[in-house]
Nucleic acid binder design. Structure first.
Length: 651
RNA sequence: GCUGGUGUAGCUCAGUCGGCAGAGCGACGCACUCGUAAUGCGUAGGUCGGCAGUUCGAUUCUGCCCACCAGCUCCA
């Protein structure tokens, strides 16, 4: 029976069942045949070399050839590169057992128990990677064709038992009964794999092994430690070089290095996970916090402050003691147990419950910027991005069920305002009910449904992140993309029907009856710590003027200009700007260099000419000398720039 | 927390095959008083991450602990 294909241009094509996607590509044109790496048939990505009759079961199937410009095409390409890696390792270390080799965001990895021919374990290090790459190059030069083989479960299991591949056997045993099991073969090497793959190894043009690290089999620390080889592959050498450049650039931008260099914060052994903020860092912090305050005041939020230390009964009532205790710092005094707050929500529930609430009082929006402490396992701490001391730009909105949609919409607008001003895009994930959760499933289903509805209403796409919700409610996670294209989870919005129940919160409705309010937990920056860390890397330390801890540094040419320099700085400060004077007895070139390295947006050089006429010679970060200007004009221009939150300094 | 690695001045890093601890940058002082990315000279600064052990003697060898780095897991 012939197979009917629906091509992307709307054309229909009938082919024999044994026809492959490669045949179709060749029939369309030689260029497409060379560029194609796989095909998408009826929504499923399949090998070019697979007979289409095997995958099209009835009716016409949508058919598209995938090239490396298609993300799914690139995945196939990288997946085959992972097999080439495995083949190379097998040649060099014949006793190696393989686990899994999946494609990840920027490449792939392969987990393996590396052993020599005699079975002796081999520890790989970065120095071994070039040798493995060289062997990969040989595999690619051999241009080995790949072939797919369908196997019966028992037969393939027996094959891997005989090969002495314990991980593969375990994978087979865990496959669902109805799973199609396939093997891919290239030259002397074969691997259990769902595919699809490139038609031959010679198609791989640009690849690189990036690192080797330990990883537990199945992520379980009680199971064997394997070695994970990370690598990546791109369509061209240029694309690979661009990727490697981003890696290098990321190292240069590391906030753990930039922060102390720019005098923003300190990380000390004395307080792991608790950063020390220096004046400049704290200035940046305050600018962000004040911005948040003004945005939230306009939205009708009220700011509160609640205790850092509260009795364990509160945490038992909120459910934290059962489900979050591992993450709390606790202490005992006078035979009483206390915990430092890891979240503000229970305290805000107490504030809500302190007064009788009417539907007319809602929404009640309580904001708090106080310090939280969470115990994070030592190995997970990472600069400002993963800390134990955290300050959320937190708020809890107590709303009636009818207000959920409008309040969610307002929160989503607030998120857009903030990230829009910073020029950062984001994508949204809906994190659903985890295995350990509070309350009943019906409430969870409702909350998850309401979140989806809010996203739809706001016209936002989202991806599902199953079982990643907070224990009290599902959440929206906003992953913002920085200047290097990396993603960070910052903002979060959670919908909670549980805590209002646990704290027996209610309001009097228009009907005179008691009703349960709904809580919306939300943070726009996420935490100040992480947000500042992300901003540091995003801007590489060169903050826009409005965020810059020091916006202008005034540089007197010599000692006799110091007083004038101080008066210039004072004028800027009067105008509400942050200005300093660097009157050290160093040459002007030296101080300009220092100011530039400190990423000062403006440098104002003053000498005899300027002092005589109330001028300052303006130098803009990264743009050099802009010539002399009246100080009042400089101040006015800077004020405008700050008020508009412009991305770049300069006129 | 687990696996592996690292820990010497504020920072980046030399060094000691077990015998008085070094550089550059930075800081501070003095001189220079300067026109747009590094002026010169000088000074201070270290229980060689912590605690034990071995030794005549430990920064160096051994053990335990702590912190950091990479990864796993977890997460704002």
């Amino acid at each position: 029976m012939a197979v009917e294909l629906l091509l992307p241009d709307g054309a229909r094509r009938e082919v024999e069942p044994q026809t492959t996607a490669a045949d179709v590509a060749a029939a369309i044109g030689p260029r497409l045949a060379r560029a194609a790496v796989a095909a998408r048939v009826a929504g499923r990505v399949v090998d070019l070399m697979r007979p289409l009759g095997e995958v099209v079961t009835g009716g016409a199937a949508e058919f598209a050839l995938l090239t490396l410009d298609d993300p799914q095409g690139l995945e196939v390409y990288r997946h085959t590169t992972a097999h080439v890696l495995a083949q190379a390792v097998r040649r060099l270390y014949p006793g190696t057992h393989f686990a899994i080799g999946p494609v990840i965001a920027d490449g792939f990895y392969y987990d393996m128990d590396v052993r020599a021919a005699d079975g002796a374990p081999v520890r790989l290090s970065a120095e071994d990677l070039p040798r493995i790459e060289a062997e990969m190059q040989r595999v690619i030069a051999q241009d080995l064709p790949l072939s797919r083989e369908a196997w019966e479960r028992d037969a393939v299991r027996e094959r891997f038992v005989q090969d002495g591949e314990p991980f593969k056997v375990e994978i087979i045993d865990d496959l669902p009964a109805e799973a199609e099991i396939s093997l891919y073969r290239q030259g002397e090497f074969y691997d259990l794999c769902r595919g699809p793959h490139l038609p031959s190894t010679g198609r791989i043009k640009a690849y690189k092994l990036l690192s080797v690290a330990g990883a537990y089999w199945r992520g379980d620390e009680k199971r064997p430690m394997l070695q994970r080889l990370y690598g990546t592959a791109f369509a061209s050498k240029d694309a690979l070089d661009r990727f490697l450049w981003v890696q290098e650039e990321a190292k240069k931008r590391d906030h753990r290095r930039l922060g102390p260099e720019l005098g923003l914060f300190l990380l000390r052994e004395e307080a792991p996970g608790f950063p020390f903020w220096q004046p400049r860092g704290h200035t940046l912090w305050r600018v962000l916090e004040d911005w948040s305050r003004s945005l939230q005041a306009a939205e009708g939020y009220g700011e509160v402050s609640t205790p850092v230390l509260m009795r364990s009964e509160l945490w038992e009532r909120s459910g934290h003691w059962d489900l979050f205790k591992e993450n709390m710092f606790t202490l005992e005094r006078d035979n009483e147990r206390f915990a430092i707050k890891p979240m503000n929500c229970p305290a805000h529930c107490l504030l809500y419950a302190a007064e009788t609430r009417s539907y007319r009082d809602l929404p009640l929006r309580l904001a708090e910027y106080g310090q939280l402490a969470r115990y994070e396992r030592s190995g997970t701490l990472h600069g400002l991005l993963r800390v134990r001391s955290l300050h959320q730009d937190d708020a809890h909105l107590f709303v009636t069920p009818q207000q959920i949609q409008s309040e969610m919409a307002a929160v989503l607008r607030l998120v857009d305002t903030v990230y829009g001003a910073l020029g950062m895009s984001y994508n949204v994930r809906l994190a659903t009910r985890p295995d350990e959760f509070l309350g009943d499933r019906a409430l969870w289903d409702r909350a998850e449904g309401d979140l989806v509805e809010a996203l739809r209403a706001a016209g936002k796409e989202f991806i599902l992140s199953p079982k990643d919700g907070a224990f009290y409610g599902p959440k929206l996670e906003f992953h913002v993309t920085d200047a290097l294209g990396r993603q960070w989870q910052c903002a979060t919005v959670q919908l909670d029907f549980n805590l209002p129940q646990r704290f027996d919160l209610w309001y009097t409705g228009a009907d005179g009856e008691r009703h349960r309010p709904v809580m919306i937990h939300r943070a726009v920056f996420g935490t100040m710590e992480r947000f500042i860390g992300v901003l540091l890397e995003h801007f590489a330390g060169a903050f826009p003027t409005w965020l810059s801890p020091v916006q202008a540094v005034v540089l007197p040419l010599s000692d006799r200009h110091a007083d004038y320099a101080r008066s210039v700085a004072a004028e800027l400060c009067q105008a509400g700007l942050r200005a300093e004077v660097d009157a050290r007895s160093e040459k002007i070139g030296y101080r300009i260099r220092q100011a530039q390295l400190q990423q000062m947006p403006y440098m104002l050089v003053v000498g005899d000419r300027e002092a005589a006429e109330g001028l300052a010679a303006v130098r803009v970060r990264g743009r050099g000398d802009q010539g002399p200007r009246p100080v009042s004009e400089v101040a006015a221009a800077m004020r405008r720039e700050v008020a508009e939150r412009r991305a770049e300094p300069g006129w």
